[in-house]
């Protein structure tokens, strides 16, 4: 499977995640995209997708909180969802949480990563095995995670807050 296909599958998952989030809370629907990826969907709300780009070796990535999923089975690699505190707090408020403490922000970023990776199995099948999410609360360097294949970063914004989806997956 091509790297492009993996990116497409995870972008679909990202769009679906924010689509459901907004549907739960009755926002109006609009999509803004600087890449062709989002043009497949007109459902996502307040979500702006950037253009995926290839990360250089030993790049420092990540925002305040990063959810990491290790992939095994028919594919191998790692998927990260990284977001700043502000975006995660906005999502927590959308969930109806009154408390915005770090424990919940860590839980949320792990749950988002788990949801995107789990949803990828719709396209990639049950042999696309995913780990329980690990949460990192600091910037991280790609060399520390043995990302020995191409690693793509998709920047996105939700309600004006920036975040990153990082995909480093290949066929096993």
């Amino acid at each position: 499977m091509s790297e492009r296909r993996y990116i497409d599958v995870f972008v679909d998952g990202l769009i679906s995640y924010f689509d459901h989030l907004n549907e739960s809370f009755g926002s109006s629907r609009s999509v803004i995209s600087s890449s062709e990826h989002a043009q497949r969907s007109t459902q996502s709300v307040d979500l702006e997708l950037g253009t995926p780009y290839l990360l250089k070796n030993e790049a420092t990535i990540g925002m305040d909180f990063t959810g990491m999923i290790t992939v095994s089975g028919s594919s191998v690699g790692t998927v990260f969802v990284s977001a700043p505190r502000a975006l995660l707090k906005r999502i927590l408020l959308s969930y109806g949480e009154a408390e915005l403490r770090d424990e919940l922000l860590r839980d949320l970023v792990g749950e988002i990563a788990n949801t995107l990776a789990g949803n990828a199995r719709r396209e990639l099948g049950a042999d696309f095995h995913i780990s329980i999410p690990r949460v990192i609360q600091a910037p991280l360097n790609t060399k520390d995670y043995r990302l020995d294949q191409h690693c793509y970063l998709l920047p996105f914004r939700w309600r004006s807050s920036k975040a990153e989806l990082i995909i480093s997956v290949k066929d096993s």
């Binding site: 949801t115 789990g118 949803n119 199995r121 719709r122 990639l124 099948g125 049950a126």
Partner: peptide
């Protein structure tokens, strides 16, 4: 979040009543 058919079928075979995807 596991959205593949095989997982849903396995859960239903084991006795789950329904499957809702995250």
């Amino acid at each position: 979040a596991l959205a593949d058919k095989a997982t849903a079928i396995k859960a239903l075979t084991l006795g789950a009543y329904g499957f809702l995807c995250k």
